[in-house]
Design a protein around this nucleic acid. Structure first.
Lengths: 115, 115
DNA sequence: TTGACATATTCCCATATTGGAATATTATAG
DNA sequence: CTATAATATTCCAATATGGGAATATGTCAA
């Protein structure tokens, strides 16, 4: 048998670098497709398509207003990832905890959203 | 221009469900390829290949011992993911923090590694 | 209404990805 | 040495993916 389907969950969604960039931008504020296009400098269809998969996995939601569509992050949807990481931490103790503390302490350098 | 390359970083690596299963198993203990095969019930080449990409992104390391190869998790390599999430949290305040607390409190149900 | 704007969708192509099967490689046992 | 165990690698086929270009859709402005 050939291969199965590629489930489109949160994990695979953020596997795409461009999608991460979109998320980073939308983390700052709700935005319109063209606003995003202006910022990231990709074609409008490219942005729309990526938004579409982000929408499918619920990490972004869409609000229509006239001919504009505002996209906004749904942070809770990152929960599965956090949970997954925490599950793993259970078996490692220190290593990741240290990181956690480190990060909580230093609230850190610039956003790394270089595109 | 057609498309570019798919950078093989940690994010895309854990986008694959099977790879997550392998990580979950290796989180418990260092293991051999065949041990993993016994557990997950996929073909040996399938396991080896996934291990190979996990190795490439450094989330697992390999220790040779005779004809056996022990694979082990390198937890620090999940750091970029944690950092990324934390960066995002900066802009959201409560939502994810609450989750964080919740998770730290209840150290939780069984592993969800059903295969 | 009509034209322009904002966005989504479709079609196509190049490439990436995964799994299976077969085979190569390495190392140990006998 | 040789057979076999443990694992990696190669080759192949099916499918998924992402981008470009063109087009469709919906909505406002004049």
């Amino acid at each position: 048998m050939p291969r199965l389907k590629t489930t489109h969950d949160i994990f695979s969604a953020i596997g795409e670098p461009k999608r991460r960039v979109l998320i980073e931008q939308l983390a700052l504020k709700e935005m319109t497709v063209n606003e995003l296009v202006d910022i990231v400098k990709w074609s409008q269809p490219t942005v729309s398509k990526h938004l579409s998969v982000l929408k499918k996995v619920r990490i972004v939601s869409e609000r229509k207003e006239g001919r504009y569509r505002f996209y906004r992050i749904q942070p809770e949807e990152l929960r599965p990832i956090q949970e997954w990481m925490h599950q793993l931490e259970k078996y490692w103790g220190s290593t990741m905890d240290q990181l956690d503390n480190y990060l909580n302490l230093i609230q850190v350098k610039g956003t790394d959203s270089e595109h």
